[in-house]
Structure formats: C-alpha cells, structure tokens
Design a protein around this nucleic acid. Sequence first.
DNA 1: ATGTCC
Length: 473
Amino acid sequence: MENKRINGNDLMALGYKENHAMGVALKINKKRLGFSRDEMLANFKNVLENPESYVADKIFRPLAEVLLNIDSMARETIALKESPVSYTVYGEAQIEEGAKKQMDIAMTLPITVAGALMPDAHQGYGLPIGGVLATQNAIIPYGVGVDIGCRMALSVFDLPASYLEANHDKLKEILMSNTRFGAGKGYLKQERMDHAVLDNPLFKTHALIRSLKDKAWTQLGSSGGGNHFVEFGIMEFTEKDESLGVERGRYLALLSHSGSRGLGATIADHYTKLAKAICRLPYQAQNLAYLDLHTEEGQEYWLAMNLAGDYASACHEVIHEKIKRGLGAGLLAKIENHHNFAWKEQFEGEEVIVHRKGATPAGKDTMGIIPGSMATPGFLVRGKGEELAINSASHGAGRLMSRTQAIKTLADSDLKQMLRDHGITLLGAGMDEAPMAYKDIHTVMAAQVDLVDVVATFSPKIVRMADDGSRED
DNA sequence: ATGTCC
C-alpha cells in the first residue's frame, strides 16, 4: 500500500481543495516522473506553500500558476445555472450519491433542457452511467461516453431451447471460433471481413478517422474487453408477441454486448479534448464540456459519432451472421439498440439532443434489450414512452461494486457455485464481472415498470467474455 | 471502455 498512487484525498490531507488546482496536480501526478510517492507528496506540499518558487519549474509550473491565479484572466469560464433543473430519479434507493451529484451538475449546464437518472446509475466521467440528458443544440462527448455506440444485439433462432442441451459442445465451439475478445485484439489480415461501413467517406476525408481505417477493419466483428460478451441462452416468450410475430415458447438465442472498439475510443478521446479546449467550464463541470452543433467541430463530432455507432452495429452484425451460419439456423427475430449515444428527438414539442450514456431508448413501442449479468436473466422490453424518463430505461443491472472492489472481496468458489446452480458455462471473464458485483436485476426492473414492459426473458447459458484483466498474452 | 501517455 506504501506505493499506491497519490489521489485527491492525499492532496486534501496536504491542504489542497477540490478545485481546478487539484485537477492540475492530479494530472501532473499521472506522468511518470521518477519520483517516489513520498517525494511527490513533499513536492505537492512545497508548491502549495511556496508557489512563487515554482513558476519556472519544468514540472510544477502549471500548478504554481493556477495557485498564483496567473491564468485566471485567460480561463474565464461559462456560467452555470444557479440551481439544477429538476429531474426524475428511478430506483433512487439503489443509486450511489456520486451519480446523483454528477447529475445535479449536468442539470446546471446552460444548454440543459431536461434530465433523468435510470435505476442502474453509477458514477462515471462527466455524466453518470445511467444518465439521460436533453440539451439545446449542443453535444457533450462525455455525455455519450467513451465507448460510442456501445449496444446490445439479440438473435432469436428457429431452434427450440432443447437444442442447447443436445448441442452444448458444438455451441461452445461456435462461440469460441466466431468471436474475438481482449483489449486491442482483432482479426489477422487474411481473416478480416468486409462491410459497407468501411466505405463511409469519413475514412477518406477526416484525417484522424482515415488513420484509424486499418485498425477498424482489423477489429470489425471483435468484442473487446470489460463487460462485453457474446452468449447463447434461452429466450422465453410466455405469450405470443404479435408485433414480432413470435409464438409463445422457448428458443435458442444469441445475445451480444459490445461497442466501437479502438475507432470509437479514439474519436471520443479526440473530441472530448477538443470540447474541453473550446468550452471552458468551472472545475466541477469540466468533463461535461460541449460542442455547439452549429459549429464545424460540433458537426464533425456528430458525423464521427454516427460513424462509430454504425461501426458498432456492423461488429454485431458480423458476429451474429457468422454464428447464424455456423448453426445453420433461421431467424425468428432480431433486435438491437445503442445505449451509449445521442439522438435528435422531440421533447415537449421541441427538438433536443438526447444523450443516453448507459441508458436504453424506450420511446413508445421501441424494442430494447436490458441484460442482467452472466448468471441472471436479461429482458427484451418494449418502451412505454415516459416523458419524465425522456423515453429511456436502464441499460442493465448496474454495478454494485467497483472492479477493484469486486476482485478484492469476491471469492472464486462463490462464483463457481453460482454458475453451477444456474447451469452456466463461462468461457473467460474475471471476478470483476461476477454477478455479485452487480445490483439485483429484478429490483432494477421493478424500479422501471413505468418505463418499459417485459416482452420476453433471456437466460444466459454459454457465456463468452474477455479473459481476466491480468492479460495472459 | 481503451494496447490504459501528452
């Protein structure tokens, strides 16, 4: 523990306040400077006490300048509303304080029209995960999220549930040979697939996106890491669904969760930095920097975001197509939805930009998928179009524990027992994705009965995820 | 989320 990274609490113990100076100090702390933890703490203490002696220092000058207020003229910031616009919170009892605090700040932005917090909400960068924000003609890159276009896709096959038991090993093999997981992972040149999304003109006209084309091609049809998965399971319709045309019954189904890989991550990073440079907000709101959609930068982000969304969709399409072919099955229904994205929508009679960062679109009769965890059910839902929720619902159960907390406190034997109890085969994944690290999906669903109706239930059976964080390669 | 550095 002696060498653990210096954090905000350490700085506060030295006398720093939670403001811009702390942000600058933490940024300096992130660089690898060759100082020990104690040396670094001593430096931070000295700069705070004698900033004037650091104005020419190579490393600590930015911090000294902020402490001396030298740049206060240059960084005049955009004024926030005096009090947050009110918003509806669903499942409030299960939502951590940090997520509500972040939402409160988002509700003071001058561009904010309305907001809502979904029952799986937890703290993120800028807008909380599970946050929905409607703005006037402006887009917040961190309101969309780092994994632009992250989405769910579901294929319900014309095969009975019994097919799964009878062909367990074959399904395992299909899953293993048609998916690719892990940070940075993709397909080799001779393996990679073609897709119309790669013909998007931005791959020629936009310098940054042009430089990412080869990586995007390589990673097309891959899943990445973290909470992403591809899984076989049983889809249960307790009654016939007229609009889908699916009869009552239990079917083999494929569910996938992933986003726009390196392409979207690089786009998000680029435009977040650009937004922060253009849109100067007070310290507590800096991660909510936005781009005006009437500016060139705003329009550029909009196009790049849509490309990342199309790319994420293409990745799922490739995965589902390959696996359907491997099965030799037909399709009864196919549903998909983004849950990290922004849309132009009508809200109370005006056009707004609706940011959903970890939230499922749930307009009237809109179909969506809300996954539970590797050992708990997910749900095919139909939106009710609740305006108070800005036509949205949760995007899952939501984390109960942070990844580090889960790895530290959960027992491998408990996970194994739980998987056995539910008859689940797990391929890959670390303890940070254990079901115990997530909120109870049934509690979360109960908190949003006004937002969605459940159409059918998905029970995971063979789950493929990235091997755990330690990375064995 | 991402090959976790600007």
